[in-house]
């Protein structure tokens, strides 16, 4: 539970890390956009008339904002958990950056992300009890393989929801809210402060990534968001609450994997789950072999514009976040001894 007593500086530290991450992404992104365009680091936006070129990736900027905040926070608190969260995020960023530059096999990201989980174990950022809504379980040994699984799974889950303009950044902003509340209740001050740069850095970036995108986040950006989300959920004793908040993305990953039946990159799948009509609205594919995804299911009732699909995904994120808030209440009731 957060310690709000006078003198522990949580409010001041919170303002410093939030402002730093927000301002770094907000101010540096336009410069990054110009730089990427000058370098020719652009990709086509297939869902717009004329397929305009959009610079990619925004991952380095998001990471810059987060790392700057975490270093300041570490210098203020000297807590190694903050260093562990930061290193996990940095390793995941490197994995994503490699994937941004080269088309790698589908197994690369999940395997490489296991390395990103290592700092959490080495620096002992995890606890020994897993909060399971109705109580907690003492699992000192089992926690280690669990961490090695959580970071790749959450990283790839967030990566899989990066489907249309602004969706992944908006989705992360919405679903980080219940996670922050959960960390405030079941975690501690330092992990809560370490989680703030994810929210505020992503808010800073959202203005440029929302429809119509001025920059794409790329795998480096999505893996920064996903791995950091997983890391703060672990360090903040909020793993199950995090899973519940991410349910639309979990569902998307599950539907894709269970229909394709192997771990494969989206761009390597021949059949597309959606088709673009002449009016640039998207429609669900009628092909039996096309992967089943969240967007395809949203489009099952008829075509929609890109902006409308994003709006429906945000609705689902608000809904799953509400379920996460209810779960926090249940967990608080049981962990406080039913008082």
């Amino acid at each position: 539970m957060l310690d709000l007593s006078f003198g522990n500086n949580i409010l001041i530290y919170g303002v410093i890390v939030s402002t730093t991450s927000f301002l770094v992404t907000l101010i540096a992104t336009p410069k990054m956009i110009s730089s990427l365009i000058a370098q020719g680091s652009v990709v086509q936006d297939y869902h717009k008339p004329g397929r305009p070129n959009v610079p990619r990736p925004a991952g380095p900027i998001l990471l810059g904002g987060i790392v700057a905040s975490e270093i300041i926070l570490y210098l203020l608190t000297l807590n190694m958990t903050i260093m562990a969260i930061m290193l996990t995020t940095v390793i995941a960023f490197v994995v994503g950056l490699i994937d941004d530059r080269k088309v790698l096999p589908g197994w690369f990201k999940p395997i490489a992300l296991i390395a990103a989980a290592m700092p959490l174990i080495i620096f002992g950022a995890h606890g020994t009890h897993l909060n399971l809504v109705f109580g907690n379980a003492f699992i000192p040994l089992l926690y280690i393989p669990l961490i090695l699984a959580i970071i790749p799974i959450v990283g790839n889950t967030i990566n899989s929801i990066d489907v249309l303009n602004g969706v992944v950044t908006g989705f992360v902003i919405i679903t980080t809210m219940p996670l922050l509340l959960s960390i405030a209740i079941f975690g501690d001050n330092d992990v809560f402060l370490a989680a703030l740069p994810l929210l505020f850095g992503t808010i800073g970036l959202y203005g440029y990534h929302k429809f119509p995108s001025k920059i794409f986040v790329g795998d480096s950006g999505t893996l920064v968001m996903g791995s950091m989300y997983g890391a703060i959920a672990i360090a903040g004793n909020s793993e199950i609450i995090g899973v519940i908040a991410l349910l639309p993305a979990v569902m998307n990953s599950f539907l894709f994997l269970s229909s394709v039946k192997k771990i494969v990159e989206h761009r390597q799948v021949k059949e597309r789950p959606t088709i673009i009509r002449a009016d640039f609205k998207l429609a669900a594919s009628k092909e039996k072999n096309a992967p089943i995804t969240l967007v395809r299911l949203i489009l099952a009732d008829g075509p929609l514009s890109e902006r409308e699909i994003g709006y429906y995904i945000f609705k689902l994120a608000v809904f799953s976040s509400s379920l996460a808030f209810i779960s926090i209440l249940i967990q608080y009731y049981f962990l406080s001894g039913g008082r």
């Binding site: 399971l132 809504v133 109705f134 109580g135 907690n136 379980a137 199950i240 899973v243 519940i244 349910l247 639309p248 979990v250 569902m251 969240l294 299911l297 949203i298 689902l316 809904f319 799953s320 379920l323 779960s327 249940i330």
Partner: peptide
């Protein structure tokens, strides 16, 4: 329908956590 699907997933998670704890 998707909200129903997500709710069903949530109920399944709660059922499993209750079973694991109890």
């Amino acid at each position: 329908g998707l909200l129903g699907f997500i709710t069903a997933m949530w109920v399944m998670i709660l059922a499993i956590t209750a079973f694991l704890i109890n």
